[in-house]
């Protein structure tokens, strides 16, 4: 299955059982990411974008009260058909993740070097301490950290947020995963650092040949990073298109409202927009040239 997409979601549904009954959170999400593609899933808080990431990582499948239906295929393999152990084995090897706040995502009681070795051991259990350190240093050099020895001997809290973000990117790509999931990367950082991080991430995923699922609420960041964009609203995909086309001519009422609501650095004031609108529930808008792959 060499032509299978790196990630394929088909009619993904998620419901939680609670005291008040069953609440459906995702109402049938279909999306795909081909090898080396950078695809954004953009939506507001509560839209279901973060739970989608957690399902792809296989983190929600074993949670009591979560009911998942539909397909999740990573490199053609159905997550639901895999054992729990096999799903866990995917993480850190075939897919990895970059978090919103890099400083809290790194364990404060271990040195960066120790954590790096752990990451490398997941793919190569036999790797020696020295080889791991050399490999880690090479990876840090790739993310423009030119004094890797100091960073490897440091703890996360001794480094700046931007530095930790680079360490996280290097770690996430250390085992050349097929899929990188980035959940609001850099949102916790200053704008100038965020801009650098984005550029760095773009270069790194290209060098390592990783596909990216980029989850964000920030339209500007999405426009800068992604090739293709899915817009998610209340557990449904409402628009899908190539980044340039989608930003140039947004078709769905919700996307248009989102776009209009972003304040412009060229000025023009804050538009008068409704927070909610019946038109937001309209069916999905598809741009030319994008479609979900045929069922196999």
């Amino acid at each position: 299955m060499t032509d299978a997409p790196t990630l394929l979601l088909r009619d993904l549904r998620l419901a939680f059982r609670g005291y008040t009954g069953v609440t459906e959170v995702l109402h049938g999400i279909s999306l795909h990411i081909r090898a080396g593609e950078r695809v954004a899933l953009v939506g507001e808080s509560g839209s279901g974008k973060s739970v989608t990431a957690r399902i792809v990582l296989g983190l929600l499948q074993d949670q009591r009260g979560a009911r998942i239906t539909g397909q999740v295929r990573v490199e053609g393999r159905d997550l639901a058909a895999m054992s729990r152990r096999a799903r866990v084995a995917l993480r850190g090897r075939r897919m990895s993740m970059i978090f919103q706040d890099p400083t809290s995502a790194l364990n404060p009681v271990y040195r960066i070097g120790t954590q790096f070795t752990e990451v490398l051991r997941r793919a190569d259990p036999a790797i020696t301490e020295r080889a791991a350190r050399a490999r880690a240093a090479a990876l840090l050099d790739e993310v423009a950290i030119h004094d890797p020895a100091r960073v490897l001997d440091a703890y996360a809290f001794q480094l700046s947020g931007g530095m930790n973000q680079r360490v996280m990117i290097a770690m996430a790509l250390a085992n050349n995963p097929a899929l990188l999931i980035a959940d609001e990367p850099g949102t916790a950082l200053d704008v100038t650092v965020q801009a650098q991080t984005l550029g760095l991430m773009r270069r790194m995923v290209a060098d390592h040949g990783a596909a990216v699922l980029f989850i964000s609420h920030n339209l500007g960041v999405v426009r800068e990073f992604a090739d293709r964009v899915y817009v998610i609203y209340k557990g449904r995909i409402v628009e899908h298109g190539p980044t340039a086309a989608l930003f140039d001519t947004p078709r769905h009422a919700y996307t248009r409202a989102l776009m209009a609501a972003v304040p412009r650095i060229t000025g023009g004031g804050i538009p008068d927009l409704p927070e909610r609108d019946d038109a937001f529930a309209a069916p999905m808008e598809l741009h030319p040239g994008v479609a979900e792959p045929e069922a196999t």
Partner: peptide, 18 residues
């Protein structure tokens, strides 16, 4: 200038300004 240039933007006019 570096602050303004780092703002993520959504339109070509903003790109030009940046």
């Amino acid at each position: 200038r570096s602050l303004i240039a780092a703002v993520p933007v959504v339109t070509p006019e903003e790109d030009a300004l940046r």
